[in-house]
Design a protein around this nucleic acid. Structure first.
Lengths: 332, 332
DNA sequence: CTGTTAGCGCGTTCAG
DNA sequence: CTGAACGCGCTAACAG
């Protein structure tokens, strides 16, 4: 519970001197005092009070990390979210910033965090372009957008090349001899990333390949719908799933129908999360480097915190095909 | 950027009056002023400054959530951690507390968070009993321990009945006709929970059942070690894995050796995470209610924050067997 | 080289 | 019913 004054009193100096020692301004303090004060700081176990620093410095080292979603739902049950936000938090800590991870789509809640904590910057994840301009504080605060799509160029963003991922998947499935291919998405209308994957996928299919994608959100793909599709004569020989999680769920559904992967139906995922390699069969998928994406996003934010005049930046990360066991080579 | 004074000036009153309105002390303010001030607060988009409140109140609404582990590792890649810490954060937010999730085993780092943020309480997860008494601030701060084992009774803790889980697993495997059973742990020496699961497991095995557990940490169970065990004549017919994740990894290892689950080898997991039902085959496992554990832990903490005189509490949650497809009935 | 001082935004007496 | 004034712990500009 020791504060600056306690240390100052014990050392017989003023708090300014102690403050200087703490911040490394040694030239203004005699060497002997420096040592003496350092000792006392250690002995007292002095830790600067973040609230007081925030107030005095007119700014904190807190970064708001916003994840769109329902506040009463544990979004970390989704392995992608867990991996990504975990990585963001880790990289923020490594740069001496504190993540304030808030799950909410409510503009007011977000605004309260931003202003209440006098945040140094904001990281938005996913897409909420509609309501975003309502967050007034953003005009004067460094912000990074990841995994989102929007046409405004004056925005800092980091994302992966989802379209290229879709193309890679289409090319690979075609190369493996598949001609009737389905697409499994989870929230097409809401996720720019998923839409881009689908675009790349469809764009790269040659004329005689059928994409069975539906342009609706996933609830439209009820298990019943998918089941009847799978049991029909026109059953796709392969599915491109917009995430590894969707692919793993698909495996379950197929099993429940007595269909085997890849013998009866081939499957591709997206992301290359740990579960992709732990799935049975191991998933062929499109890999993205989540940790690097997080690192680059954090570094970009810090750049803009340190230099508020920097022009907007965009980074698009590459993806790559990972061949494993969930896609069967069709003869003929 | 509006603060109390701005509102006060605009309303032609003092900041005290505004403060009273904000905190619902309406009896001291005329009704008209109350309405007027409320309007202004909304129009200005006023949000109280957390740093200033923390300072003035001599305490914050931040709760330190400590996860032991390496700070340069993304522990949310482990689905159990993701599920549990995600749930903790969610329940803290719902009670208007801010989680400060720190991954570290370094006592100094932890202490800095606790003191620097003037934390309202601390939640420890996993076991670090050795260094814990070095955290001096703890003596005067509400703290909850989860997933840990220690004999001190003067401690608030929430955990599950790991031993019962081990027993359930042993009983079930025995009932299914298995007589040579192995145990796969991940960090026996460090995790009290895992040790308890093993204890319960061994305790409930009848004499003619062999537990092939090794009392070492997982690195001793190199894939090579396990492989040679699996290829030997004394190969266990079933394995009890200390987590669903370990079980899923085991499936991969078995597949790589050309062995199938459950046809050649049966497997049980622990936790009943989403991956258990998404695995192929779907895992039979011991289920714990992670969300409820988190909720109870948060509620317990808040109880102790609100009443510092409360005696220590211990909660032990039950677990239950979930039969799915990874354990084969042995005839004979 | 060192100390004094004026805020930072808010909570909380205590006088009016 | 209302406001002035002090303190929370720290920073930074300034004076010595």
């Amino acid at each position: 519970m020791a504060n600056l004054k306690d240390i100052a009193d014990a050392a017989g100096v003023s708090i300014t001197t102690v403050s200087n020692v703490i911040h490394g301004n040694y030239r203004r303090v005699s060497e002997k005092k420096v040592e003496e004060i350092k000792q006392l700081i250690a002995r007292f176990g002095y830790v600067p009070n973040q609230a007081a620093q925030t107030l005095a410095r007119r700014g904190s080292r807190v970064v708001a990390v916003i994840a769109g979603g329902n506040e009463n739902e544990n979004i970390f049950l989704n392995p992608y979210n867990a991996a990504y936000f975990g990585a963001l938090a880790m990289h923020l800590y490594q740069n001496n910033y504190y993540p304030l991870v808030r799950v909410s789509s409510d503009v007011r809640t977000i605004e309260q965090d931003i202003r209440g904590w006098n945040v140094a910057g904001v990281m938005f994840n996913g897409l909420f372009m509609r309501s975003l301009n309502q967050i007034h504080s953003l005009s004067c605060l460094p912000a990074i957008f990841t995994d989102g799509y929007c046409d405004l160029p004056e925005i800092n963003q980091v994302r992966i090349d989802d379209e290229a991922g879709g193309r890679l998947a289409a090319d690979y499935l075609t190369e493996m001899g598949h001609r009737r291919i389905g697409f499994i998405g989870t929230a097409l209308k809401e996720s720019g990333a998923e839409q881009a994957r689908l675009n790349g996928f469809c764009g790269s299919l040659t004329a005689h390949v059928t994409a069975l994608a539906e342009n609706g959100i996933f609830p439209a793909w009820t298990p019943e719908r998918i089941s009847s599709l799978l049991l029909s004569a026109q059953r796709p020989t392969a599915f491109f799933c917009s995430s590894d999680l969707a692919a793993v769920r698909m495996i379950q559904l197929l099993h429940s129908l007595g269909l085997r992967v890849p013998d009866d139906v081939s499957l591709m995922g997206f992301d290359d999360l740990p579960i992709a390699a732990l799935s049975s069969p191991r998933l062929s998928t499109i890999a993205q480097n989540i940790d690097e994406k997080a690192r680059l996003a954090v570094e970009m934010l810090i750049r803009h915190i340190n230099n508020r005049m920097l022009p907007p930046e965009q980074i698009v990360l590459g993806v790559q095909l990972v061949r494993r066991d969930s896609v069967r080579q069709l003869s003929e």
